[in-house]
């Protein structure tokens, strides 16, 4: 099976700091592979574990530094890395991002069976890129996927989790799946993997290379734009209950009663 995994470089939310103008302090913030994309990678790598003839290409759109996460993915066991990078891509919303990724796939990696994305990126958190790529390439999709099992040359079985329960869906290939957290932990990089990654050349393409026009990418190609950004006001006014454990419990019971909680 030929798989493409779309991964995104995101700042580690644990150490984000903000300036007074609500922009992010980028210095000193570690960049990580979006956590959901780690599940996407793990899913692809498990398919490859079972079927060694599987090939995995990892794709990202981002600044030149994003090459680093592609190297990491190769160190984990992926075969090729593709970086689409261009100053004109800056300021892309999900529509422009998914169009760019879809074009990159059509132009530079058209021969695939399965595209795996993460469900969300933890910075933008839109969950839109995967389904939009599917639409641009006219492919079927399964979102909120937890597990993937190839069943046939051109079919896979996907376990999907919704508010109402667990669905098992058979999807025709080629197709797109978007992964939520799966039941297994993503693997770690091995030494031999790192060595292989060092020797692997990342393919880098610009806007022209993938055949897109400036009005279709970046800020110009984005129908949405941010008119205002602000930090939510967090009221920090926790009322601490005081006294012994019994006294605190009694006060809590009072509060629960006031709130009209059942049985309280």
């Amino acid at each position: 099976m030929k798989i493409i995994v779309c991964i995104k470089q995101v700042p580690d939310t644990a150490d984000i700091k903000w300036t007074e103008n609500n922009t992010m302090v980028r210095e000193g913030v570690e960049s990580i592979i979006n956590p959901f994309d780690e599940y996407a990678l793990e899913t692809a790598l498990r398919i490859k574990d079972e079927n060694p003839e599987t090939t995995i290409k990892v794709l990202t759109m981002g600044p030149p530094q994003a090459e680093e996460i592609l190297k990491r993915a190769i160190a984990l066991g992926c075969d090729e890395g593709i970086l689409v990078s261009d100053k004109k891509f800056a300021g892309a919303d999900t529509q422009a991002t998914s169009r760019t990724l879809a074009h990159a796939i059509s132009a530079k990696a058209p021969d695939f069976d399965l595209i795996i994305c993460g469900q969300f990126a933890i910075d933008g958190d839109t969950a839109q890129t995967g389904p939009s790529i599917a639409q641009h390439l006219d492919l079927p999709q399964v979102t909120y996927a937890k597990e993937v099992m190839p069943i046939h040359q051109n079919k896979i079985l996907v376990t999907r989790e919704t508010e109402y329960g667990i669905e098992k869906i058979k999807m025709q290939l080629p197709g797109v799946i978007c992964m939520i957290k799966c039941d297994y932990n993503p693997r770690k990089i091995t030494i031999s993997g790192s060595m292989k990654a060092q020797d692997t050349q990342i393919q880098t393409y610009s806007m022209e290379d993938i055949g897109l026009a400036p009005e279709l990418v970046g800020i110009k190609g984005s129908p949405t734009y941010v008119s205002k950004a602000f930090r939510p006001e967090r009221e920090e006014n926790c009322q601490f209950l005081e006294g012994s454990a019994d006294q605190m419990t009694a006060q809590l019971m009072e509060k629960l009663k006031e709130l009209g909680v059942k049985n309280a």
Binding site: T13, I16, W18, N22, M24, I122, D123, D125, T224, Y225, V226, S227, K228, A229, F230, R231, P232
Partner: peptide, 9 residues
């Protein structure tokens, strides 16, 4: 960013 920043779009 997990609720750290609000954006009006």
């Amino acid at each position: 960013f997990g609720g750290e920043l609000m954006a009006t779009i």
